[in-house]
Amino acid sequence: MKQMAFTYQSGLSSESVTLQNKIEMAEEIKDTSVISIKNLNVKTKDGDILKNINLQIPKNKIIVLLGPSGCGKTTLLKSLNRLTDLHKELKVSGQIIIDGQDIMKAGQNLSAMRQRMGLLSQRPFPLPASIYKNVAYGLKLKGIRSKKLIAHSVETNLKRVGLWNEVKDRLKSPATSLSIGQQQRLCLARGLAVKPTIILADEPTSALDPISTKIIENLFKDLKQHYTIILVTHVLRQALRLADHVVFMYYGEIIEQGHPDDILKNPKTAILKKYLVDGN
């Protein structure tokens, strides 16, 4: 596997980074990383989906998972909150350490663990309920019963995603009555309401028009001050616009990773070079 040492540092080219610097930076990231993935493998009876993934994900950054369809980006994302458990045909092994806890170990409180990670899917999946209830859902699961608290959280989070003014007069309407772009922002508000520390976003703008895409991208830029965002995307320009760190995957392996300027402008491997040429 062509696993590269993690070389994130804004504006630093790979050539200028000495081995010592690399080691220091890797150590630094290890300290600030919120997620540490060690030897993660995901298999089905037909073959490997993820092969020996090792990755450190730093805090309050946007990490973009890039790669062709079927390379395992979504599987990696879903492994992080153990949604892979839903697919009984998958065999998952390895360690995913989040804030010092290995979430792969048996006996984990999955509900609490998942609440720490907001999930935004390729296309929005509002729950079969009103706009208000969608945002309130996670809070009620958390055991919050105070109507005042819930109402406040609903308003705050709808405002955060810029949806409040558009829906404040129809909070009891079904969430499905919103446009796709609005639904995606609603799903983001719903995820933020449970106060996660990490946001998992699986091509969240792939079904959106350019205006809605821009709104979501701007939101991500604002949100990274407080959240670690792991974003799966096919769009190279989006990766360049948003990423603090890019991870390029191919056939279940991490091929290259680093600062977007390094990865997207000076690729080292032939596979990534070809992907970028074809992608552009």
Binding site: L110, R114, L119, P128, A129, Y137, L141, L200
Partner: peptide, 29 residues
């Protein structure tokens, strides 16, 4: 019922049964 909807519910902290109650039964009503 789309898998994404189940995942959305679980990722918000629902247990499997809560997901069934709030999503599967509700959506499939």
């Amino acid at each position: 019922i789309p898998v994404g909807m189940k995942e959305a519910s679980l990722s918000l902290g629902a247990t499997h049964w809560e997901m069934v109650k709030h999503v599967i039964i509700r959506k499939g009503f």
